[in-house]
């Protein structure tokens, strides 16, 4: 599966469009990470625990999108967009969407 966030794939031709595909996941942070981040919050800088948490979650959402596209018979997804939103206290939604296409 070829993924890009451009409208076309440089060097390849799109031969068929399958429409929107998307994947999402809502993750809450756990208490252990929260305590560690609380200490880190004192001196500032990168909160590595949270970076990893969101990265994992984003990969999961992307994999769901890829599965959906594969089910349609697509071999590429173009114009991929990501969005992150805090939906509740301590929980964030990661949403990925794009257009499933077939490239020749």
């Amino acid at each position: 599966m070829i993924l890009t966030n451009t409208e076309t794939i440089p060097g390849l031709n799109i031969v068929e469009h399958y429409g929107l595909v998307s994947g999402n996941t809502v993750r809450a942070k756990n208490i252990g990470r929260d305590i560690a981040a609380g200490f880190k919050n004192l001196v500032g800088g990168e909160l590595k625990g949270y970076t990893e948490l969101l990265e994992d979650a984003r990969n999961e959402a992307t994999n769901r999108m890829i599965e959906q596209a594969a089910g349609m018979g697509a071999n590429a997804i173009v114009n991929i967009r990501f969005s992150t939103s805090a939906v509740a206290q301590g929980a964030a939604e990661l949403y990925v969407y794009g257009t499933a296409v077939k490239v020749g």
Partner: peptide, 8 residues
């Protein structure tokens, strides 16, 4: 990506 916060 990166998650950052300010110091106290």
């Amino acid at each position: 990506s990166i998650v950052v916060s300010l110091d106290y």
